[in-house]
Design a protein around this nucleic acid. Structure first.
Length: 211
DNA sequence: GTACGGATTGACT
DNA sequence: GTCAATCCGTACT
């Protein structure tokens, strides 16, 4: 399956692309190896949406959202975690799709190593945690949340924010899975725009972060 | 200069 | 259920 191009990310409105990205595969190629997973949960953030980081104006933090379609927007949240977004609007317009969960397809060992390493190098109170991905629960725990998948794929805000999915080492293949039912719901964890039904996930998929 | 908070996570009661 | 923990950009003063 081929890497998706700029025409894909700019080919439809943001909410449509958020739905179409379900079943596609997010890939990161690094010197340590390839990690990848099928996108099973997304959220759309659009113009006029108060929860969208680009709602007010362009700033240093959200600048990547105003880049061309196919740009990666990575931001840090709650002092700890990174979340990744795919820009789906033309240059100068700030709309994006948040990737919230993956079903791992490649590089399981590397994913587990990165997640466990994050515990060790993180704050003291979480040092005892480990992930055993040979168990069903451990495997599911690799990428079933926006902060988790960013760690598992080795994506950093400093290096990867504002990079291009069209030409960079992080990209999306797709779609690699079809024939599933989709669920549409309100988004997770927001304080604004809580009633907007812009969250989409693959029905019945056990890697979705929250039902 | 400085206070504040953001689309999360995991430990603990 | 509750709590706080790799920041650092933003919105004030």
């Amino acid at each position: 399956m081929e890497r998706l191009g700029a025409d894909y990310y700019g080919g439809h409105d943001t909410l449509t692309i958020a739905q179409q990205l379900l079943g596609c595969e997010l890939v990161h190629e690094t010197p340590e190896g390839i990690t990848a997973g099928i996108i099973v949960e997304t959220e759309g953030y659009i113009t006029g949406d108060p929860a969208c980081h680009a709602y007010r104006r362009q700033t240093t933090r959200n600048a990547a959202m105003f880049g061309p379609a196919g740009t990666l927007y990575v931001y840090q949240i709650y002092n700890h975690y990174n979340c990744i977004n795919v820009v789906t609007s033309p240059e100068g317009v700030g709309e994006a799709v948040l990737i919230r969960a993956l079903e791992p397809t490649e590089g399981f060992d590397l994913m587990a190593d990165r997640r466990n390493e994050a515990f060790k190098t993180g704050f003291e109170r979480y040092r005892s945690n480990t992930i055993d991905h040979s168990t069903t629960a451990g495997f599911r725990n690799l990428c079933n949340g926006p902060g988790k998948l960013t760690i598992a794929l080795g994506i950093s805000r400093q290096r990867d924010n504002n990079s291009s999915l069209v030409t960079g080492s992080i990209y999306i293949r797709g779609p690699v899975r079809a024939g599933f039912d989709m669920v549409t719901t309100t988004r997770i964890g927001l304080t604004q725009g809580v009633d907007l039904p812009y969250r989409y996930y693959i029905k019945g998929n056990s890697f979705v972060s929250k039902k």
